[in-house]
């Protein structure tokens, strides 16, 4: 299936676009590369903005509405920049029966932030994950990439508040 129009230039001269462009080119600049390209863009920029979605769609020859449909279907993709720090709470079964619900309630009480939200000061984003596979550490959270096991709500809140 040939691409009907010319490849668009990247939205800016930010070097990170190169990574996205290369990823797409390696996969033939064709529609099936859409999800991989979105992964590349999110990894490079932390989230997917309209520029990124348009660029990826135009390069791969995917209609914009379909790009948007895909980007919003998968919960891994985020269209908004996240806070300075992220706290991912695992809500897998093992964590659930070991108190993940209490952790989320504790975060909401102390920091007024619910899953998929960022605190008002833009400091901390709370996300949930469908099982990190760290069931032996239940309940588990990931704070800025570091997995913490057997989490105590008070300690977690204290750590986040100190950030």
């Amino acid at each position: 299936m040939p691409v009907l129009y010319h490849k668009p230039p990247p939205p800016s001269d930010d070097k990170r676009w190169k990574i996205v462009e290369t990823r797409m080119r390696r996969l033939g600049d064709r529609p099936p590369a859409l999800i991989e390209a979105l992964h590349a863009a999110q990894e490079a920029f932390g989230y997917l903005d309209t520029d990124a979605l348009n660029y990826v769609g135009d390069t791969l020859g995917v209609p914009h509405s379909r790009v948007y449909g895909v980007a919003t279907f998968y919960s891994f993709f985020t269209l908004k920049p996240s806070g300075e720090h992220t706290c991912v709470v695992c809500t897998g079964t093992a964590c659930y029966i070991n108190g993940a619900k209490d952790i989320l309630a504790g975060l909401d009480r102390a920091l007024h932030v619910k899953p998929k939200e960022t605190t008002a000061d833009g400091k901390i984003s709370v996300l949930t994950a469908r099982c990190l596979g760290a069931c032996s550490l239940a309940p588990a959270v990931i704070v800025d990439g570091d997995v913490k096991g057997k989490v105590n709500v008070g300690d977690l809140v204290a750590q986040l508040e100190a950030m």
Binding site: T50, L53, N54, P63, H64, S65, R66, V67, Y68, G69, T72, F73
Partner: peptide, 28 residues
């Protein structure tokens, strides 16, 4: 034209135009 597609999933699923923009602003 492929102006329409779907966004989100489950109960949140909605039909939408272009990049989820208002229909009147659609370029396609």
């Amino acid at each position: 034209a492929h102006t329409w597609d779907v966004m989100h999933r489950g109960l949140e699923t909605r039909v939408q135009t272009d990049m989820g923009i208002p229909w009147g602003e659609s370029t396609t």
